[in-house]
């Protein structure tokens, strides 16, 4: 290879032309909006795809800017009860709803399934800040509207209990003491899932809340 023969200049010029045109072209098509499945799977593995009910409650109470809470259940369920500030958007309309780039979208359904599917739709449509409520409306009812408050005497757990009780009261919920045999009165109307649930709400809620709070403590929230 001696000093640049003519063809090397032509190759250099061709690269420059193709490179300059690339600025105008922008980005290559990503295979007919095919989903980056591996990328989404990583987000799921890192558990960055969902929020807990208490996190969502904190966001709503703290008036997090550009927050959109989206209920994907049917309209009768929505009329019966929905999370404050939530709007209803059917699953089939999700991808075509014009969300802003800066908006944080939190999806919820009765359980976690429909909202998780909605999460995939929105991620596929290119929205970055999308989360779903993992335990669905049942988690919201158990952990925010009707949380079991531990009567443990340790300081950190007392502070945590106080915080949860405060959040709960903000949303008009009724915290229950874990030690009391009797349950506090039902604070909220039944959701669909609960209407189908043969177990009495209070009993189910008690165990689930205890589990949910144990989980939160484990994660150091």
């Amino acid at each position: 290879m001696s000093v640049a023969p003519g063809y090397q200049r032509y190759l250099g010029a061709a690269a420059l032309v193709l490179g300059t045109l690339a600025i105008v072209a922008g980005s290559p098509r990503l295979g007919n909006a095919r989903v980056d499945i591996a990328g989404l799977a990583q987000i799921v593995e890192r558990e960055e795809d969902h929020v807990t009910a208490l996190e969502l409650a904190d966001w709503i109470r703290g008036k997090r800017p550009n927050l959109r809470v989206v209920d994907v259940r049917d309209s009768s369920a929505f009329e019966a009860y929905h999370i404050p500030r939530a709007e209803r958007i059917a699953l089939r309309d999700l991808a075509s709803t014009p969300f802003g780039k800066a908006e944080t979208i939190v999806l919820y359904s009765d359980g976690g399934a429909h909202s998780a599917q909605g999460w995939v739709f929105l991620r596929a449509a290119g929205h970055e800040r999308v989360y779903f409520l993992r335990g669905g409306l049942s988690e919201w009812l158990d952990d925010v509207m009707n949380p079991a408050i531990s009567s443990s005497t340790s300081e950190s757990s007392r502070a945590n209990s106080a915080r949860i009780a405060e959040i709960s009261r903000y949303f008009g919920g009724v915290p229950r003491s874990e030690e009391q045999g009797e349950q506090a009165p039902q604070a909220v109307p039944l959701s669909d899932a609960e209407r189908h649930n043969s177990q009495p709400r209070a009993e189910h809620g008690h165990a689930a809340s205890r589990k949910a709070i144990a989980r939160l403590r484990g994660r150091g929230c």
Binding site: A4, G12, A15, L18, G19, T20, A22, I23, S27
Partner: peptide
């Protein structure tokens, strides 16, 4: 940045680099 801008930037770095290398 968009892919296109990055592509242009890398081409530019390469061409300047070739000159400097020679």
């Amino acid at each position: 940045a968009s892919y296109g801008v990055v592509v242009f930037g890398v081409v530019l770095v390469a061409l300047v680099g070739f000159r400097a290398a020679e």
